[in-house]
Design a protein around this nucleic acid. Structure first.
Lengths: 157, 157
DNA sequence: GGAATATTGAAACACGTCTATCAACCTGAG
DNA sequence: CTCAGGTTGATAGACGTGTTTCAATATTCC
């Protein structure tokens, strides 16, 4: 698992920025946007794909338009930290669609989740009937977002 | 600002799930995936787009492949909470590419940021030379992700 | 400097795509 | 039942797309 440190042209960077912003451009449109020819553009994207830099193209949805109004951060402390408890909890997290992110954390909490649901009733249901019922979970603390200031998928490249 | 509660077919839901997973399918491929005709598929997507449900199609990158190894959560408390201080801080957050997410929070912290950088040196630089120098910021607390368990952009629809 | 290598832009083509139209069908209201 | 209103799948054609090949140019290394 050695990444040969992967050199990125300024042009590669512009390409990556462009596809991170808008993935449905044609090679011709991309080429014009970053200042090169469609052929070269295609070759570079293929190389980046082969290098494993490019992940899937996904369509983002507007949570507000779907009525998903509640954005919460939930910190979790585990009862035990053995491999089985962790594995079981992480599988739980993978299976629940309300959990968009889960980080295993340093510090006083074991995990930090970001959860998106319709309203507080749905959050309460998730918390009481799913999360806190998980056998590996000891306690949790919830914090609610008043406003989503920024939410981008664009990595700094 | 009334959303007419927007009814979603089971078929609409399958469509939304599909495009959230893979945005670069043709209408024909999508139609087959969700079990309908390309024409109907196109009409429904257009309707969803007009309803404002569909956001941009974006390409996800692999942070590890790019050497972006550090994922941090940073909580921020402000000196003041007037509109000008908040606006200035939120603009700062929008401008910094390392900050992928920023939520305005309830509770003891004013903001919670998720930050992605190359390494600890770069994080220290961001913290000391950017964030903590911002005139509206009083204090901050950083927590580091040991591991990214889950990170999806798929909303529960 | 000069040779070998890598990278570029332009052109070409086969293919699949988007979008519109149309008749058939289902669904409810009266 | 009957008749609109809305939704469906099939069809068709114009268009744009991805991908390859080729010569020319830039870059690297001795």
């Amino acid at each position: 698992m050695t990444t040969a440190t992967l050199v990125l042209d300024p042009l590669d960077r512009r390409l990556l920025q462009a596809v991170q912003r808008q993935a449905d451009l044609s090679h011709a449109a991309l080429a014009e946007a970053v200042g090169t020819s469609p052929a070269s553009c295609w070759r570079r994207l293929k190389a980046l794909e082969d290098a494993g830099v490019l992940g899937p193209a996904v369509r983002l949805l507007d949570p507000a338009a779907l009525g998903l109004a509640l954005d919460a951060v939930c910190q979790v402390r585990m009862k035990a930290h053995d491999a089985q408890a962790r594995g079981s909890f992480e599988q739980f997290v993978m299976d629940r669609d309300e959990v968009l992110e889960c980080l295993s954390m340093s510090g006083e909490w074991d995990y930090q989740l970001r959860i998106v649901v319709r309203d507080m009733a749905q959050y309460e249901h998730f918390l009481m009937h799913a999360l806190l019922r998980h056998p590996a979970v000891a306690t949790s603390a919830s914090h609610f977002a008043l406003k989503r200031i920024k939410a981008t998928t664009q990595l700094p490249v």
